[in-house]
Nucleic acid binder design. Structure first.
Lengths: 337, 337
DNA sequence: AAGACTCGTGGGAGCGCGCCCATCTGTCAA
DNA sequence: TTGACAGATGGGCGCGCTCCCACGAGTCTT
């Protein structure tokens, strides 16, 4: 059984008594084959246990049936992980349907990021999914310039021209703040995300717009920037408490930062939600396990992954044009508010 | 810039005024090239922005410089995710060094699993990393039979013949139970993992051996099987409490099951660690965020991933023989015990 | 009955690359 | 001067596949 090489299309053709082309047609589902020939070929394939060599096929078709998912390692650290796990799950599900391979690329530093362009240039993938792009990021542009279809998770800014799938960050943040206002809170602080990312700016904009809408002045003293990590949330909370001891609520732009804020509040002896209400963003697994369970804005991460994969597939397989999609978010009220 | 096709080795050869072979030699680092020719080729490569087509190369070398990481989707659900995230991080780090691509394959069901063999047979990868294999799993054997180097995370049973990297499950579990015994506990229950997995059996064996060693009888009534999920941990805890209301400690074979156990204990009004001490296994991010913070056995997951990747690379690149490695575990005492 | 189609079929060419082997150049010893 | 040899170089070939196009056999039309 072992020892002799894998059968090629030639072997199968000989076995079935037909030409290579006919075998190729059967394998690729062309209907320009007689029932008789098709049957013989299929039999031969089964007997020989033939599997087409996709590398050889890729050489001539100039396609690989694989896409890359690029994730910056620095931001996948810590508990941001649930986000990536859910994303991968969504992406993977859709890709499996279209028999497309998923190349995972964790990018640690700039060096690896540069290398990425090259690695992608060797035509190992038909398209790229890009996560957490910063505003000034040049990678997406470079990829498009190379003619490689690209879909972003989130956008670089409001004027994004590439394909992307985004959550309704403004709407979600506004809903969170509105909820706090309705609960009678008036000094609502926010731990924002990095302001060089659209997701950070948008969630902050939602915080502002909800205040505006309710005609409650938004005090800029109540804004502190975090970096989406637990430690960043803790640090921001500390600064906020020092600056505005009278705050009665916090909207953190991520669950993980909310966890940090909770820890700092506890350390300072502030009760949640008694003294200070806390709301996060994402509804990761974390949110159900904090003490108290965290009110948060649910972001459909898995659906986001699915949509990204679907758009990319549409582009690579069917030549579809660029698409920009925004998915709705939803407030999940638990006990921290 | 766009429009004209990517340069091939031929283009570069013409540009540099040398033959294709010389370009190939330069690209692949052969030293049978004069300094002069090498310089000209390198210049041409830079000018034309040439990147070798790895698909074409793969066709002739019969290598892809890619490996697959296969993860059963069912078990990556819920909060088991930290494990996979850390594993991926470790694997990815080592692979990046050897410029190897990582194909991620989430396998949802048996159908996809069958398809996997085929997909792997198309020679898109040089080797396979396999996670959470059950004892009767035939996939590893099939892969090896196809001549595809395979490294397992964990082993199928004590007599495993394939390459694997394992944690010291017996030792870790024994250390956990020993710790509980030293704390004066005498009725130590355990929520085991699935017994059709070596990891489940081994951690249970550790529970037994620590009892034996301390000459404390191990009551089989205190054993209940879980499935590594939070809900499974909750269910097992419920059954244990009904069967043995006098238990004063629980060793859960995973952090996630420990979380479930904690929830059930709280629901029943048992205080932790006052009434019942709880110890988990893995030391995932979860463990630091439970209430109270969870004592657990640390498993070096990222190192496990690194080691797997290293072994696989040694095999595919240098023809190294099979290797079987067991990594040490370490008890991390927090407040739940 | 002969042209005009349609359908099924298969061989040749070529995708971009690495490797084998023949060729060429220069150097050194006899 | 000649032969031997090492170093440098390039062309042919083939990896396994898809696609183009030519060809034969049957069917339909006028």
């Amino acid at each position: 059984m072992t020892g002799n090489r894998r059968p090629t299309i030639k072997t199968v053709a000989a076995r079935a008594g037909v030409g290579r082309t006919t075998v190729s047609r059967v394998v690729n589902g062309s209907d320009l084959v007689s029932a008789d020939a098709r049957a013989r070929v299929l039999a031969a394939i089964k007997e020989l246990n033939y599997v087409p060599n996709s590398v050889a096929r890729g050489l001539v078709t100039n396609r690989t049936d694989a896409v890359a998912l690029v994730i910056p390692e620095s931001e996948s650290r810590l508990g941001s992980e649930p986000f990536f796990a859910a994303l991968i799950r969504g992406v993977s599900g859709v890709l499996a349907e279209s028999r497309t391979q998923l190349q995972l690329m964790l990018v640690r530093d700039q060096a690896e990021r540069d290398q990425l362009t090259e690695s992608v240039a060797t035509r190992r993938v038909d398209g790229v999914l890009l996560v957490s792009v910063h505003s000034e990021d040049r990678l997406p542009g470079m990829l498009e310039e190379m003619g490689l279809p690209t879909v972003l998770a989130g956008r670089r800014d409001a004027g994004e021209r590439l394909s992307y799938v985004n959550s309704d960050n403004v709407g979600g943040a506004a809903a969170a703040v509105r909820h706090l206002l309705e609960g009678g809170r008036r000094r609502i602080a926010t731990v924002s995300g990095p302001l060089d990312m659209d997701v950070g700016r948008s969630r902050l904009a939602g915080w502002r717009s909800a205040h505006e809408e309710a005609e409650v002045p938004a005090d800029e003293l109540l804004v502190e920037t975090g970096d989406f990590t637990e430690e960043g949330g803790r640090r921001a909370m500390r600064l906020l408490l020092e600056r505005a001891p009278d705050l009665d609520a916090v909207f953190a732009a991520s669950d993980l930062m909310a966890v940090g804020a909770l820890a700092e509040l506890r350390r300072r002896g502030r009760r949640v939600p008694g003294d200070v209400a806390v709301v996060g963003f994402e509804d990761s697994v974390l949110a159900r396990h904090t003490d108290p369970p965290l009110t948060t804005v649910r972001q459909p991460v898995e659906e986001l992954g699915r949509t990204m994969a679907r758009i990319l597939t549409d582009i690579t397989r069917h030549g579809a044009p660029r698409q920009q999609v925004t998915l709705p978010t939803e407030l999940v009220v638990r006990e921290s508010s």
